[in-house]
Design a protein around this nucleic acid. Sequence first.
DNA 1: ATTGAAAATGAAAACATTTGCAATATTGTT
DNA 2: AACAATATTGCAAATGTTTTCATTTTCAAT
Lengths: 343, 343
Amino acid sequence: MAEKGRRNVDIIAVAKAARVSPSTVSRSFNHPDLVKATTRKKIDAVVRRLGYIRNRAAQTIHGIRSGTIGLIVPTVDQAIFAEMIQSFSEAVEELGFTILLASHGFNLDREYSLTRKMLEHRVDGVALIGIAHTQDTLDLLAQQEMPTLLLWSFSPTAPFPCVGSDNYAAGALIGRHVAELGHRRVAAMFPPTEGNDRASLRFAGVKDALAEVGCRIPEAWQLVAPYSVATAKSAVEALIAEGGLPTAIICGNDVLAWGTLHALNRARIDVPGQVTVTGIGDFKGSKEFEPSLSTVRIPARTIGARAAEAIVQLITSEEAVDVAALIPPEIMVRGTSGPPGKA
Amino acid sequence: MAEKGRRNVDIIAVAKAARVSPSTVSRSFNHPDLVKATTRKKIDAVVRRLGYIRNRAAQTIHGIRSGTIGLIVPTVDQAIFAEMIQSFSEAVEELGFTILLASHGFNLDREYSLTRKMLEHRVDGVALIGIAHTQDTLDLLAQQEMPTLLLWSFSPTAPFPCVGSDNYAAGALIGRHVAELGHRRVAAMFPPTEGNDRASLRFAGVKDALAEVGCRIPEAWQLVAPYSVATAKSAVEALIAEGGLPTAIICGNDVLAWGTLHALNRARIDVPGQVTVTGIGDFKGSKEFEPSLSTVRIPARTIGARAAEAIVQLITSEEAVDVAALIPPEIMVRGTSGPPGKA
DNA sequence: ATTGAAAATGAAAACATTTGCAATATTGTT
DNA sequence: AACAATATTGCAAATGTTTTCATTTTCAAT
């Protein structure tokens, strides 16, 4: 039972109550083997009685690690980030660290100031999403010699080690799939690519794969829809209203694909009989759609877990280590894709 | 351009380079009005040149706020939590704080140790999800006089101020809706209620509302499915296989409702003609389903934003303040609910 | 009982800041 | 030019730890 009242229960108060010196109390936490078992027992008892809680801030100014890792994401509430954050946080927790989380809403200037903030908090490492960041941010991290990890996308030429998937390859994979099915009248729907290297790389992959079979996506069929079922659905409804449907709609992520499927379903357009629809990401629930969504799996949980190990290695390892990891995307051919119908 | 090399750029290094005392440097950050404009300029220039970054850990041991708020959630990767975390983090950021995030996976013992960890980090406040917590956790927070907020559910009798919705009311709302449509052969699908007061309260609300019209959910139709489209879908497929369908399926959250809709869609069972389906939550995308999902809106973003203001008030306010807020749930009658068909 | 090595402990300095108080510099007034 | 009032700065103590080094204690071996 911890005693009530009494703020400032510090290591000195504990020492007094246990009739030992502060040094001994400190040691009993950090190097328990150096203090006699009976003394340790006595201290532990006092700690419990007084409700003492260690002060990491005070430890941190001794150059001891803060035990925190800064994670800066565009946003938390996109399925795919949420999944990754979850597994990253679980793994990091397991390794004794806690996450300091901030989101910048796809604004790279905010990312810079959040990075500064993380450094003020003396995090032990920083993880950023994607490859594209302002030079300021990169310089800052480099100059402070902060262990830094780029998460989510992989590129061998990135300024810091990456753990992630190859978004270009993911786009190419799905583009090729659609091309091989024989589609030539193809539409694409992607989120705005500004400040979002993931989306632009995917789109590039798609375009290049289609180009290999001489297929080009007409300007009018390059739909832009921010990440949301609602905007995707209405974009496709507009497309339907115009008439002259494509035989395939390649979506930049599964959420957009869901919206697309709802719109087509509503218009009683058969998938994949009349129109093939594909996503990227393989979010939870995509497989259970009716019909089941053809997409490219980007294993968010794996990335999160691997990234956690990687950054902890960067933090704890004395010598330079190579922690970069490419987690390859994988095509999932399911029910929403098929050969072009006789439109 | 910050100078390269040189770690330990501390306030003393800055002071030396600017030919003033460390106190003046400190003041120029914390009480700029107390230092002459020209001196401040000089210091700022040095700070930029040396790439100095303030050390919040060192400030914190002076009783100054750490600028962090501990947020402990069951999991990040459920749509509804993700949305809330996002708006909470945005709002908290706006107010000058950063989130220290941890997830316990619905394990309340882990919640306790995460809470301890937060206290070690000297967070300025702690936000927990839901009403139900172990006595240990509550005692710990109370004893440390930590500003604490209970998030997501609202209860006037909770041990700490709450900002959230009324889950019982949410359940009652949808139960009454289904009852009023005339349904009497009703199934329910809820996540396991252990350690999840949200789910159990919702279910209680549903049962009570149905009881008012003398309707009871038979044992065999009380489906339990963990939060996932996949499990919901297969649970409903099992139900269909058994034959003897209910005229309505009330789901504990929208994700379960999505799975249910997919299963029915696959079996070509008309919604709402043959079976009414309802959710709770009104997640993003629920409205865009075909047919559009009838559900109860629990405004996650509003809760997150309000909660952020509330906890910052708890932290910064001298006197005791009443920050509790009930954000009422709201029924959204849409396309998946209708009068019972002639089964 | 002594001795010496090993084990356990304590004193004090160090860490990067903030702040109360005292000292000094700058003003404006006469 | 002298004075007071005010503005600005520096000194030194304080914050809650850890750690080095020196001191004390313990205990087995003589």
